[in-house]
Simulated assay, not measured.
Amino acid sequence: MEVALVVLAVLVVIVLVWAIAQYNGFIRLRNLVQEAWRQIDVELHRRHDLIPNLVETVKGYAAHERAVFDEVSRARSAASASGATPGAQAAQENALTQALGRLFAVAEAYPVLRASENFQQLQLELTSTEDRIAAGRRFYNANVRALNTKVESFPSNVIANMFHFSRAEYFEAEDPAVRAVPQVGFGDEGR
């Protein structure tokens, strides 16, 4: 009888230690996801802060392109709104990226603008920020994958359900340029 109680107590302790370890693992992963999202948010704010300067620089050379400037401003305002989920933020950022693409298309028509040191510096800063956002997106999505795997896997999903841990949302790029398959061409040169 005593042996059975000792075995039962050991089993209860083992299950309890396992449950505590799983719970703490969920907390750690949730915090990593939140930290990674905050890092992306910092870079997105940096991007949003660069855009008005870029628009003003282009306006100085192409003042008649009012529709493009308004589109960029609207997209920036929507993307700057706080409280968006990663999916909603991704959609807003994709709209902003498309608007910026049209702004850069306008800039292509003005060689003096492209040669402007201010424009080049802003373009370089924006490119650097985009690179940091992409790196942050990879880090964030890796943490989301780890959390989602743990939430969905047995037996850890038992603890996830008990303590209401849920899947996190990925931050995905919808930019066609990012998703496009690179085109490789071998011209008729040398024939």
Rank of each mutant, 00 (worst) to 15 (best):
F69V: 00
N53D: 15
G190E: 10
I20H: 09
D70F: 05
L32Q: 15
G101S: 13
A109R: 08
E174W: 00
P52F: 04
D49G: 04
E152P: 07
H164G: 07
R138T: 09
T127K: 04
G60V: 00
Q39I: 09
V158L: 09
P176C: 11
V58H: 03
Q121M: 13
L103E: 05
G136R: 01
L147Q: 13
T85N: 02
A142C: 01
I27E: 12
E93W: 07
A95Y: 12
I159K: 02
A135M: 08
R28M: 09
A142Y: 02
V72K: 02
A67V: 08
R66V: 05
V10C: 09
A99W: 03
L50Q: 08
A62G: 11
Q183H: 13
V58Y: 01
N24K: 06
F154H: 08
R138L: 08
A4S: 07
A142P: 01
S73N: 10
T149K: 00
R30I: 02
A4M: 14
E108L: 07
P111R: 14
V33F: 05
Y23H: 06
R179V: 14
R167P: 09
K59H: 11
A160T: 03
P111D: 14
W18A: 01
Q98W: 11
E35I: 03
A62I: 12
V13Y: 01
V181P: 02
Q123V: 14
I51E: 09
N53Y: 02
V184L: 13
F163T: 10
V151A: 11
A88Y: 00
A75C: 08
F69C: 00
I159V: 15
G101M: 10
V33T: 15
P52Q: 14
T85H: 04
A63I: 03
L11E: 04
F69W: 00
N94C: 05
A88N: 06
A84V: 11
V144F: 11
V10F: 09
S156I: 10
V10T: 05
R137A: 14
A67N: 05
F139W: 09
Q92I: 00
F26Q: 12
E130H: 09
E189D: 13
S128Q: 13
L124K: 15
N141C: 10
R102D: 03
D188T: 14
Y170N: 06
V3M: 12
H45R: 14
D41Y: 02
R138W: 06
V68Q: 03
N24E: 06
R145A: 08
V181Y: 02
I27Q: 13
R179K: 15
A134C: 09
A36G: 10
A78E: 12
G136M: 02
D131P: 00
I51C: 08
P52S: 08
G187K: 14
V42T: 13
S77C: 03
L126R: 12
F26M: 10
L54R: 09
S128A: 15
G190C: 07
F163N: 10
R76I: 05
N53V: 03
N161W: 05
Y23L: 03
A4G: 06
